[in-house]
C-alpha cells in the first residue's frame, strides 16, 4: 500500500537535493538564464528583416512577437532534452546506486528530480516572457496566459526530461548520450513552426510537425501569447502534451526499474 507521507519524503528529498546543487553552482544558473536571453536579444535582431517577407503578416511588424514564444519552446526543449546528462553524472558518482539502495519509491524520486528540472525551465521561460514584454512583445500575455504557458511548460519539461532520463539509463555513456540527444532535438526543432510560420513550411514538414511534440508546445505557447485561451486551438496539442508527460514518466519509471531488477552494474 502506498504511504503518501513517505512518497512526499522521497519527492521532496530529491527535489531539495537538486535545488541545493543548483544553488551551489551559480555558473549553471547564469548559463541557464543567459542562453535564452542571447537567443532573444541577438537572434531576434538578426532576423527582424524577415518580417517584411510577407510570411509573418499576422505578427504585424514585430518579429519578436513571433520569435519570443519560439525562444520559450527552445529553452524548454533543450533544457529538458539535455537533462539526462545529469543522470549519467549520478550514475558515475554512485548516487543512483545509493538512491536505489534506500527504501524510497522510484517514481517519487524520478518525479522529484523531473519537477526541479521543470521548475528551472519555467523560471527561464518567465524571464524570457518578462524581457520580451519589456521589448514590446506583450501580445495577449497576462498573468493567466503566462500561468498557462508555465503549466504546459511543466508538463512538456516532465515529458521530454523523463524520456531523456530513460535514454540516459539505457545508453549509460556520455558520448552516446550526446549523439542521441543531438540527433533527436535538432530535427525536432526544425520539423516544427518554432523558427518559421507553419504556412511557409513545406507540406511534408507540416504533416510531420502534426506528430512532433515540439510543435504541440509551439502551438500552445504561441496561441496563449498572441490570442489567449483559444481552446479550439489549444485542446489537441494540450492533450498531446499531457499524454507525453504521462508516457515519459511511464517510460522512465519502466527503464529505471528494469535497470534495477536486471543487470545493474
Amino acid at each position: 500500500m502506498l504511504n503518501w507521507k513517505w512518497l512526499w519524503f522521497d519527492f521532496s528529498g530529491i527535489f531539495w537535493r537538486s535545488h541545493a546543487q543548483l544553488v551551489k553552482l551559480p555558473i549553471y544558473l547564469l548559463t541557464s538564464i543567459a542562453t535564452p536571453l542571447i537567443w532573444l536579444l541577438l537572434f531576434s535582431q538578426i532576423f527582424q528583416p524577415v518580417i517584411h517577407t510577407g510570411q509573418f503578416s499576422e505578427f504585424g511588424d514585430n518579429y519578436l512577437l513571433f520569435f519570443a514564444p519560439g525562444v520559450v519552446v527552445m529553452t524548454t526543449l533543450f533544457g529538458a532534452g539535455w537533462s539526462g546528462m545529469g543522470v549519467l553524472a549520478d550514475i558515475s558518482t554512485g548516487v543512483i546506486e545509493k538512491i536505489i539502495s534506500t527504501p524510497s519509491n522510484r517514481s517519487a524520486v524520478i518525479l522529484g528530480k523531473l519537477s526541479h528540472q521543470a521548475m528551472v525551465i519555467i523560471m527561464q521561460a518567465v524571464i524570457v516572457m518578462v524581457i520580451a514584454i519589456l521589448m514590446g512583445a506583450q501580445g495577449s500575455l497576462n498573468i493567466g496566459t503566462a500561468l498557462g504557458i508555465a503549466g504546459f511548460g511543466y508538463l512538456m519539461s516532465i515529458g521530454i526530461a523523463a524520456i531523456s532520463y530513460g535514454v540516459a539509463l539505457l545508453v549509460r555513456h556520455t558520448d552516446s548520450m550526446m549523439v542521441v540527444v543531438n540527433l533527436s532535438l535538432m530535427p525536432m526543432q526544425f520539423l516544427s513552426s518554432t523558427m518559421m510560420p507553419m504556412s511557409s513550411l513545406p507540406k511534408w514538414i507540416q504533416v510531420v510537425s502534426y506528430f512532433n511534440p515540439v510543435d504541440w508546445y509551439v502551438v500552445v505557447v504561441r496561441t496563449l501569447w498572441l490570442k489567449g485561451w483559444e481552446w479550439d486551438i489549444l485542446l489537441r496539442p494540450g492533450l498531446c502534451i499531457f499524454g507525453l508527460s504521462i508516457a515519459g514518466m511511464i517510460f522512465c519509471s519502466y527503464v529505471f526499474n528494469r535497470a534495477l531488477s536486471g543487470d545493474w552494474r
Partner: peptide, 24 residues
C-alpha cells in the same frame, strides 16, 4: 558502495539531509 554515492559539491550535513529523507 565502492564508489560512494554523494554530492561532492554539497556539505556533509546537506548530503545527510537528503539521504535521511529517502530513509523516511
Amino acid at each position: 558502495s565502492q564508489i560512494g554515492g554523494h554530492d561532492h559539491q554539497l556539505t556533509a550535513y546537506e548530503n545527510l539531509r537528503w539521504i535521511s529523507k529517502l530513509y523516511h
